[in-house]
Design a protein around this nucleic acid. Structure first.
Length: 423
RNA sequence: GGAGAGCUGGCAGAGUGGUCGAAUGCACCGGUCUUGAAAACCGGCGUGCCGCAAGGUACCGGGGGUUCGAAUCCCUCGCUCUCCGCCA
């Protein structure tokens, strides 16, 4: 969430920047400022009341000690009103804090100045394109036919065991998953990311920390018996490592990676895009996360993008890099780049990675800070990106590399798969 | 799952109703001394909020209660440890 200090100091700037998201935030901002004023007034009064009552209590103690019992008893009366008033004020302050929090939760992050104007994904800016789209034979097919033809994935069995969106990988299909995970993790650790293997279920505090909760869209699987949530991405446990942590200036950059399955209910997303591997309830992903000093976070984002681009190049997948426009930017992000691979069998681009700088939006929620050279604490910047999500990579790999003999495995992956063709 | 013990500042650990935001030790930072370092000595050393500041206020696992006053007593939730049970 945005910091109160920023809203206080840069209200108009923020309103203007949020307009890029096609959001009229003026009313909310004013409500926040007003509520903030109430909060401070309330706090000042409460502090004064408590100060008086504390000093009376101290006096009573002294009187008792020096044996002046009656005087002490008489003094107790004076605290009655103060006590009542302090209870009132505490309750009022609790309400104000809650309302303030709700208002702050409503506001998305302020877009970076470089974010282009736009309403939807159609307005995203293509930054660069790499590779050549393969020219496939006339009888080329989309991946869902290939996975069936070569016995790689059984969607029907997944339905039988669990339900739609839970594919069952078999044989070389399963091995390919394992190979990709290993390939991504090895590359990430070589690039200086420390591997973490986090829990797949998280508590409420972690969900709130990354903004996954409150889950307005009902995207997370919830286990009521234990009050836990299945993670929608490794970002949730990995970022929460730094919840309520105060780092030192010299700790940066902190770079983590982790493989996890990801669970998403995808409530409300039905239609043509859900075919095959395009959208699943459970999928595998290797995530990279960076915790950075505010001065360096945009440089770090750049290196993260280049890193993921390198992965796609090793996999010989044609891709393009998009700078997301204001209308397509996710709630918590200040600047996001999407990487899309060309899916030759479907004849369209598939989003495989989203690399975002959240600046202090997440760290303000999780209270991830560092002690600066000025001796004060400041919020860190958090970043993350997929590196990479498997299903669409698999879709493109299968489709783009199909020929009359079967499916060719890219060079870089062969040490991991142990086979160079699927036939 | 059952029984017991516990949860205090970066760590260790004292504190069982007032003078406690909290002793002491270690770690850390600054200084004196030294050619340099170590040792020794001196000083500093949690976080949030309000305030221009002085200062005030809150926090001893979370929440609630008793009391003029709670780290300390009570309730509740969470977690950790030990023993037992079950188990990959």
């Amino acid at each position: 969430m945005l910091t109160l200090t920023d809203i206080r100091n840069k209200r108009d700037e923020i309103e203007k920047a949020l307009a890029k998201r096609n959001l009229q935030a003026g009313e909310t901002l004013d409500a926040i400022l007003k509520e903030d004023e109430n909060r401070r007034a309330c706090q000042s009064e409460l502090d004064a009341v408590l100060a008086e009552s504390n000093s009376i209590s101290k006096e009573i103690g002294n009187l008792f000690k020096s044996g002046k019992r009656e005087e002490a008893e008489a003094m107790k009366v004076k605290t009655v009103d103060l006590k009542e008033r302090s209870h009132e004020l505490k309750e009022k302050q609790g309400q104000i804090d809650e309302e303030l929090k709700q208002l702050l939760y409503k506001l998305p992050n302020v877009p970076h100045p470089s974010v282009p104007l736009g309403m939807s994904d159609e307005d995203n800016q293509v930054e660069s394109e790499w590779g050549t789209k393969p020219v496939l034979a006339d009888n080329a097919v989309p991946h869902w036919e290939l996975t069936e033809r070569y016995g790689l994935i059984d969607f029907e069995l997944g339905v039988k065991i669990t339900g739609a969106g839970f594919p069952l990988y078999k044989g070389k299909g399963a091995k390919l998953q394992r190979a990709l995970i290993q390939f991504f993790l090895d590359n990430a650790t070589d690039a200086g990311y420390t591997e973490y293997m986090p829990p797949l279920l998280v508590n409420e505090a972690s969900g709130i920390g990354t903004g996954s909760l409150p889950d307005k869209e009902g995207q997370m699987y919830y286990m009521p018996a234990d009050d836990l949530y299945l993670i929608p991405t490794a970002e949730v446990p990995l970022t929460n490592v730094f919840r309520d942590v105060i780092l030192k200036e010299g700790d940066f950059p902190i770079k983590l990676t982790g493989y996890t399955p990801c669970f998403r209910r995808e409530a409300g997303s039905y239609g043509k895009d859900v075919r095959g591997l395009n959208r699943l309830h459970q999928f595998d992903k290797v995530e990279i996360v960076a915790i950075e000093h505010p001065d360096n976070s945009y440089d770090t984002q750049k290196t993260m993008i280049e890193y993921v681009q390198g992965l796609l190049e090793k996999l010989e997948l044609p891709y393009r890099t998009l700078r997301l426009c204001g209308g397509d930017l996710t709630f918590a992000s200040a600047l996001t780049f999407d990487l899309e691979v060309w899916s030759a069998g479907q004849g369209r681009w598939l989003e495989v990675s989203s690399i975002s700088n959240f600046e202090t939006y997440q760290s303000n929620r999780i209270k991830a800070r560092y002690k600066g050279e000025d001796g004060k604490t400041h919020l860190v910047h958090t970043l993350n990106g997929s590196a990479l999500a498997l299903p669409r990579i698999v879709a493109a790999l299968l489709e783009n590399n199909q020929d009359e003999k079967g499916i060719r495995i890219p060079e870089a992956l062969r040490p991991y798969t142990g086979f160079d063709y699927i036939s």
